[in-house]
Design a protein around this nucleic acid. Structure first.
Lengths: 349, 349
DNA sequence: CTGAAAGCGCTAACAG
DNA sequence: CTGTTAGCGCTTTCAG
């Protein structure tokens, strides 16, 4: 058994009372120079580290924030987690990160764990359908009174930050339309945020283009594999398309792989646009045209909202919603900025 | 102020003593069926969640493991973190993940935080030079008595898991040599694990090849940017080379980007091999020949070693070292499996 | 089987 | 300025 040095040991060593030691290590209270020195010496020689657990018990503050993301091994979420963690650290908080794999059971388990561990707040980044869908989960959260903010899904009574996905997707698809494409396919689904599909539909409709439901594919994951499979399926169906909009970059990578294996050139034969602008998007070949989400801004807004929520009493919290703008990053995969022929080719159809 | 329901409230509601409630929620002790039911009812209606902080205080166990990685936004470390976290969760532990950006200050701060928070153990994944270099850090750790295991760096008296990087790199470079390359460059440096450079040197020496120090580049980071910059520098130097081995895949991506911008074809003009086999390696174009590290195995070994260490008294811990084999994954970037001409071209020089 | 009581390590009044 | 004391919410002897 490891014997930890406690405040008591320090007090004895320094020949003072424990409250004096407490005062010195917290630095807020007035203690004479000489005793301060004595205590500091004792602290160092005894290698004393104040027990955060005991402190948390008294302060009723753990200085811990729980973060829930769908998948830590996903570049987008990894970066988001890092940003949030760093920012929270600057505010004096430690972050507990959990990765749910989109499984409701895991979400519930982690949420319960956060409540039991008395985190000071929760940042919930999860696909919308889960959060609004699982009433039990919401109950647990609301009754616990833990301050919480969400990314993307809007839940009644909870502050949230969301990218302007409807507009972002709309712009992306409009970009393809302006390039002359008419048969545009979409890969997405609820896991990727349904608003992106709506943006796609809106753009198609506003431009009076035929909305072929066979070109709209739903996937259950966010990895290249799902994109690859979806494309194989689409190709097998025999439906014609000259452009593809993907709910996220990973799906786009997989889709492009499938296209190339079928000897379909990107962007010459099919133009592709992704979503998120993860780091790989600019490393991929062709470089990926995509909708950039300002991860750093999103992270900051989330934290701002959460800290604000934590300041308010549980009764009178005013939920706020912040919409963060997205940006279309045009690269090779949509056929612009590489060869102008591509552009003209499409215009002339 | 949020009023949490405590064990006291439950006891009152159920009309029993707090110790009985404690017995019921812990389920270990013998309590009569009828009281058990009464208590459970009270727990549910009052929405009671046992306070993990108070429990930790008594048990002197936080059921928390601290994990330190260089960079969470790096695909390799993100995956490693996810694997470790999931595995630890299955063992009843929660993981605190920290990302150091290779800054000693941050490492120290996080380590201190872990000690103060009384984590039950630490998994330290960090570039070797830092760990063995910062004596102050090691002191803090050793005196605290916190069980710790490391990934890669060997420190006296601490268990560690390490990939067989010397052999892995050796094989990678030998692969290039067998392909007929003679002027092989290397990008790495201490941040990437010095053993990879040694593997490179060993292969060159064993094959009696000229070891041109100008072809060995040191970088300070692990992102594509560093690889890109290093290659630009190498190209500017005018040194001739026909192959390139990179300390990790990210560096390789950046390096290839730089090569292509200089109109040097990969693998036709320069063959490239990376290290790690992150997911992007097979998505990249050309697909990347690389040395695979079995992340899942490494994670499991780390946890096994840590749990073992946690079982032992602080005095008689026997440090163990586990070496995990790596595997060369041959893809397009080294010039095999694409066009045979490439292969012959090099053989005939 | 169940209750009373003693703390875990620390902070925060409350007195000196 | 400094010491004494009462808990925070829970587990765990120790007696019934």
């Amino acid at each position: 058994m490891i014997i930890k040095t406690t405040i008591k040991d320090v007090a004895k060593k320094a020949g003072v009372s424990i409250s004096t030691v407490s005062r010195v290590i917290n630095g807020m209270d007035r203690v004479s120079k000489s005793t301060t020195k004595k205590v500091q010496l004792a602290v160092e020689t005894l290698n004393f580290y104040p027990d955060h657990v005991a402190r948390a018990m008294i302060n009723k503050k753990t200085q811990t924030i729980g973060l829930i993301v769908p998948q830590l091994s996903n570049e987008y979420w990894a970066l988001m987690s890092e940003v949030i963690q760093n920012q929270l650290w600057l505010n004096g908080y430690t972050t507990l990160i959990s990765s749910t794999d989109n499984e409701t059971d895991k979400e519930n388990a982690y949420l319960k764990m956060y409540i039991e561990r008395r985190v000071d707040g929760i940042i919930y980044c999860a696909p919308s359908q889960h959060l609004s869908g699982d009433q039990q989960q919401m109950d647990m959260l609301k009754r616990s009174g833990v301050p919480i903010v969400t990314l993307d899904p809007s839940v009644v009574g909870i502050s949230c930050v969301t990218g302007d996905h409807l507009l972002g997707s709309f712009n992306a698809v409009e970009h393809l339309i302006q390039l002359g494409h008419r048969n545009i396919a979409y890969i997405g689904g609820p896991v990727v945020s349904i608003e992106r599909e709506f943006g796609y539909r809106k753009a198609m409709m506003m431009h009076r283009l035929n909305l072929n439901e066979a070109l709209i594919l739903t996937v259950n994951g966010q990895t290249p594999k799902e994109g690859y499979r979806a494309l194989q399926q689409l190709l097998a169906s025999g439906e014609k398309f000259d452009a593809l909009f993907c709910g996220n970059d990973m799906l786009a990578f997989g889709a492009i792989k499938a296209l190339e294996e079928a000897n379909i050139r990107v962007p010459e034969d099919v133009a592709v646009v992704g979503y998120d602008d993860i780091q790989s998007a600019s490393l991929f070949k062709p470089t990926l045209t995509t909708v950039r989400q300002p991860i750093s801004d999103i992270g900051k807004e989330l934290i701002g909202l959460l800290l604000q929520c934590m300041d308010q009493e549980v009764g009178n919290r005013t939920p706020r919603k912040i919409v963060v703008p997205t940006e279309l990053i045009v690269r090779e995969s949509s056929g612009v900025g590489k060869q102008d022929e591509t552009f003209f080719f499409h215009e002339e159809r």
